[in-house]
Design a protein around this nucleic acid. Structure first.
Lengths: 162, 162
DNA sequence: GGGATATGGTTCAGATCTGAACTTTTTTCC
DNA sequence: GGAAAAAAGTTCAGATCTGAACCATATCCC
């Protein structure tokens, strides 16, 4: 770090716009979900990812990777979801180290109840303001950023190669 | 909410890419700042915004607006920053309700120490992966999103009208 | 076989964040 | 002038998150 190359005006502006956009969006989603369904966005994601999995179940490690959570955070979150009756833990018979988290029927119902409002909020803030071409170009840029942020491509939003 | 319009494949992909990008970026910044300077990004922002203000001081309300923090969160954060000796609180003589937060010399020094590494991280993850044209287009999209997320334009990254 | 290492998860301690309640001071408005 | 409302912050209680330490099981490799 000999000689810092500071951000010029356009870069500053872009950086702050990105910061504000991501914070405002995640706050809007959290507020909507908390208000209408009594769960933070992180918990919604857990339910959603489980619901898309075969058998509506995943090991804790798989689930942590998909929702990008630390083992610790996920463990706490699943504790709450289990208290709510939305997820059930069980031990794997093959490998007794691993814990399987399974979406309960009540959890699936809660997710179905929450989804429409959540999707509407995402659409309202993320897609309604952008034209289709803008969205495509925007996604291209995000994938370029992901290449740097996630060099091993662990994120479950792999770039589709044409 | 009669009939939900779900996200199509491209929208799903865009939405997940955005989620991952913003989370990975904010984690990368937090990790770098915590490791090299012992502060989370939110605290860095407070120091940075104070340093750019006349007299390196702002009222708590002004500061909360600029860094987009709730009054409560800001109050907690300034407690920590005061314990670290980086910020000093004082009462306004005119309006005895308001508290003024002022960056100390030690706080300014800590900021100067932290800035190069932080800027390098932002540049590395946000600007190196994008061409200049991509960045400009990306910023345009962000401003379109901000129009919906921040209808009263409270964010300090006002769209420049040509 | 059996110790060293790796893997899967949880727990612990502590930091941060959230929303609501509260205190103090100022402004508004008869 | 004085009660009611607003504004500025703080504090309280509780939720969530973080990183490190920890336990249990499984795999590796002589």
């Amino acid at each position: 770090m000999t000689d810092t190359r500071w951000l010029d005006a356009d870069e500053q502006e872009t950086w702050r716009a990105f910061l504000w956009t991501s914070r405002l969006l995640s706050e809007a989603l959290d507020r909507q979900l908390q208000r209408d369904s009594g769960m933070p966005h992180a918990y919604y994601m857990i339910l959603a990812m489980l619901s898309e999995s075969p058998g509506r179940a995943l090991t804790m490690t798989e689930l942590a990777a998909i929702v990008h959570s630390s083992p610790s955070r996920l463990s706490h979150a699943v504790n709450r979801l289990e208290e709510a009756g939305w997820v059930r833990r069980s031990k794997d018979a093959e490998d007794r180290r691993t814990t399987i988290a399974e979406l309960t029927d009540a959890g699936f119902a809660a997710l179905e109840e929450a989804a429409p409002g959540h999707v509407a909020e995402v659409r309202r803030h993320l897609f309604d303001p952008l034209s289709r071409e803008q969205m495509t170009e925007f996604r291209r840029s995000l994938h370029a950023l992901l290449a740097s942020l996630d060099p091993h491509r662990e994120a479950p939003c792999a770039e589709k190669r044409p």
